[in-house]
Design a protein around this nucleic acid. Structure first.
Lengths: 201, 201
DNA sequence: TGGGTCATGTACCAATTGGTACACTCGCGA
DNA sequence: TCGCGAGTGTACCAATTGGTACATGACCCA
């Protein structure tokens, strides 16, 4: 009831709603990445992160709102991966792709990747808390990837198609990896893709 | 209530029971493909397909068992797609890929494809009813695809990697299509892939 | 005709869910 | 010192869940 984010003196040591909310949602994303979002209950989540379900309702208003925040935060984490990619200039497109693949397949991110596919499933079903990610699911990644293609001399007309293809392939192989755990096999397929995509070294 | 298609004078009563199960599970898959499997409840499912939740328990023992049957039936439908692919011999690998893509992106299958990703999400989370599909998720498709690669003269050493890559790309683009609905954009990316994969015509 | 099996519906149960009401504590300004 | 408002826990609520007990009714075999 008091989710007024308009707190001008928020940084004056006032550890208030916003900080607590952010902290809670962060813990919630961790928990959800580890245990799934499908059968999440406020009580179990609360018990796991050390608050009562009463407080979750208090801070987020409803489970629905909390889910929205969780999805947003998870999306923000994904985007963090993307921006870290930008932080390394002068990388060839192949280098960018390899780096993306490396980062995405880091076993420590497995939970988050699983959560990604889980949320996709919900969004595809029209669940209101997950639907917003559909907007940026492809578009947000297409921009930088296509830009990299163009910068590397790709035909502008096909840059978007190539970017889209690369993104889809990475995600498809990621799903394969999560499902089979066959790291070597999936890596080999990725190498095959890079060979086709950028030509043999 | 109404044992419409089952003829009592045929065989013994057991057949009726099996038929009824198959009929129920078929209707259940339809419903689940249309409305999602996440928040499925026996009561709602029963109301949708015209039986009481009591009967679902009676025929399947538990919700868990019913889910197992639903997942199996859904898997069987997917496999039907695969076998229809086999039914057309003499197709070039590019032709097979195109055909696969055509079939998968048929709008009438959208619900089933969504269900596929939904079940994947559950399986990735270790849900017991969905986990079994992880076995065949990649392997079952790899065999015929790799065989087609070899038959078309591909290097046997890379045939599996190429098959794996093709499968992943198709699935990634399918996810893209379901998420964005941008048929033209996704088709263009697919064409780009085919060009890379099989070379320009 | 009568007994018995089986399919089905009704009513119910305990557990869990999201959400609310109220009481309590604690820090801060007057 | 008081009081007041924010943060928190406890107890509770109605709704929904999967699952069960029992009655009913249709059908088959003798």
């Amino acid at each position: 009831m008091h989710r007024d984010d308009a707190h001008p003196e928020g940084e004056a040591g006032h550890v208030t709603d916003r900080d607590r909310r952010a902290q809670l949602v962060d813990a919630a994303v961790d928990h959800v990445a580890a245990h799934g979002i499908v059968d999440l209950s406020l009580r179990r989540l609360g018990a796991a992160i050390g608050v009562s379900h009463r407080m979750l309702i208090h801070y987020f208003g409803s489970k629905e709102q909390l889910l929205v925040e969780i999805v947003r935060a998870s999306e923000r984490r994904q985007r963090g991966l993307l921006s870290r990619l930008h932080a390394e200039p002068g990388l060839s497109p192949a280098g960018v792709a390899r780096r993306l693949w490396q980062q995405l397949t880091d076993p420590r991110l497995a939970g988050q990747e699983r959560l990604f596919f889980e949320i996709c499933g919900h969004a595809l079903r029209g669940r209101p808390e997950a639907v917003p990610i559909l907007e940026g699911l492809v578009a947000d990644w297409l921009e930088p990837l296509a830009a990299a293609e163009v910068a590397a001399g790709a035909d502008p007309a096909t840059a978007y198609s190539r970017a889209r293809l690369g993104l889809a392939t990475v995600r498809g192989l990621l799903l394969d990896l999560l499902a089979t755990g066959d790291r070597a096999g999936v890596d080999a397929a990725m190498e095959e893709f890079l060979r086709l995509y950028y030509g043999p070294e």
